[in-house]
Amino acid sequence: MAGTVAARWQGESLAERYESSTATREPALVKWSIIAVSLTFFAVFLLLPLAAVFTEALRKGWDVYFAALAEPDALSAVRLTLLAAAIAVPLNLVFGVAAAWAIAKFQFRGKQLLITLIDLPFSVSPVIAGLIYVLIFGLQGWCGPWLQEHDIKVLFAVPGIVLATIFVTFPFVARELIPLMEAQGKEEEEAAIVLGASGWLTFWHVTLPNIKWGLIYGVILCNARAMGEFGAVSVVSGHIRGLTNTLPLHVEILYNEYQFAAAFAVASLLALLALLTLAVKTFVEWQASRHFED
């Protein structure tokens, strides 16, 4: 799905080729009807919500907007969101590179099963992602009594939020790198090793430049999800204001308190993050396609 980083930028010349031949183009009426219907659908279901976030956020003016963002609870939510992403993303990055190295560069039994298991967190409901850590670290859970004895808080505290975030963003980097590194083969690395480079040097100077764009792509998607996760984090956070609220949870609290302008102001921060993510993603796809054409 998102794995074909380079493919989409060939689109423009392709459309021209199809439109230039009578055999492969539709009548103008059909063409513009299809465009009109699909763009209307796109506008109603995707653009409208995006526009609504910013309109609602600014409904009561810039003063209310900035006040909502400068509020101590909002700031602590920003800090916690950044902290959770700063832990979860690097961990999943290291995991993704390790998993892709093992899977793409070597043959072993059960490889396909391993790939499926790595993808598993994507098909699990975020609510269940939170629930599993409640079952393990909750008071009635496996580790609950022991944790309480030693006065360690995981659930309704930062570690629980970080764990849930790691779970929901688990496959992002790995699933981007595995097909990419499989396609690239291992000849270049083998040549480097045979010529006497160490494994680490080989990875750093041969593999990394080749997977650079795929890596960045995986990391930005991972980061967007890490900062925006709601369901899983909601289950494990306990919603303690100023302590265990991430930005999405802060949005929910404000919304449920009917502070709509403030809720949408905080939400607009997350929407900006989403737009930034899409911009970087588009740039990376463009870079990767240039690399691809060379």
């Binding site: 976030v53 967007a224 925006g228 709601f230 949005v251 899409l278 993603k281």
Partner: peptide, 17 residues
Amino acid sequence: SLVDLPFALPTAVAGIA
């Protein structure tokens, strides 16, 4: 580029919008 918005936009934000 914007087709991927639902992947990038946090679900809670989509929900209230």
